[in-house]
């Protein structure tokens, strides 16, 4: 039986019914830039980094089902240009200082910015006032880096069943809050063992007392790019089969 396929940047990508463009591309080792998507969870469609052109229409690949014989553009100059602008918007919206950030080298936002050749933030910074929450004995919350992907919100709700996080406010004032009247993480039952503690793509949820234990230069995205890692992971999975 021949498998259904679609074209991604001219290459045939096999997919199974119900898979999104993102899932099928990932399995085939093709990198579609993303921030709010995580391979273990269903698509969310908010960051819009994964915007592709499917049969001529712009759609978020993480929430668009793959269909037989559709033609999808992904890493074209036009789309990467839009993605770069989206990244720049995210960088100026929060307070991102990579050189001093504990997440540097392990950060999906930073790695994606490198992959897309983002050379500057371009726009004027918003410099929002986002105080950190150091109340919890094991975990520090540095809201300055939050990109509102809601991964922690979703995972704490759907996997941990604790509902520790939520988004509050509207528009540019939207921000992450903690499920406590005091607003402090210490007043919740959040624990380092929660799946939500491990899911932040940027540097908001940080483990205390472990700062810089791996030197910058030897971190996840330091040696190989985020795109290459997707390709290598798919190849390794293929070999296992």
């Amino acid at each position: 039986m021949s498998q259904d396929t679609f074209l991604l940047d001219g290459e045939e990508i096999p997919f199974t019914r119900g898979q999104t463009i993102m899932e099928a591309a990932r399995a085939a080792g093709k990198f579609i830039p993303h921030l709010c998507w995580h391979p273990d969870f269903t698509g969310h469609g908010s960051c819009k980094l994964c915007t592709v052109k499917a049969n001529g229409h712009l759609n978020a690949a993480c929430v668009t089902a793959a269909r037989k014989d559709m033609t999808v553009e992904n890493r074209t100059p036009e789309l990467d240009d839009k993605r770069r602008t989206l990244l720049q918007l995210l960088f100026v919206e929060g307070n991102h200082f990579c050189p001093s950030c504990e997440k540097s080298g392990n950060c999906v936002l930073q790695a994606t910015a490198y992959e897309l050749d983002m050379m500057s933030p371009h726009f004027d910074h918003f410099f929002p006032d986002r105080p950190v929450d150091a109340s919890h004995p094991e975990v520090l919350l540095d809201f300055n880096r939050c990109i509102l992907c809601e991964l922690c919100v979703r995972v704490s709700r759907d996997i941990d069943h604790k509902n520790i996080f939520a988004l509050s406010g509207r528009g540019i004032a939207k921000h992450l809050v903690v499920n406590a009247e005091s607003g402090r993480l210490a007043d919740t039952d959040f624990s380092l063992d929660d799946k939500a503690a491990q899911v932040c793509p940027v540097g908001v949820i940080l483990t205390k007392k472990k700062g810089f234990s791996v030197p910058i230069g030897q971190r996840r995205f330091d040696a190989t790019s985020i795109a290459t890692q997707v390709t290598e992971a798919a190849a390794a999975a293929q070999e296992e089969v």
């Binding site: 469609g45 908010s46 819009k48 989206l86 509207r170 540019i172 939207k174």
Partner: peptide, 10 residues
């Protein structure tokens, strides 16, 4: 803006 997606929020 509801603030859900990056292009509209920012």
């Amino acid at each position: 803006s509801c603030g859900f997606c990056t292009p509209c929020r920012v």
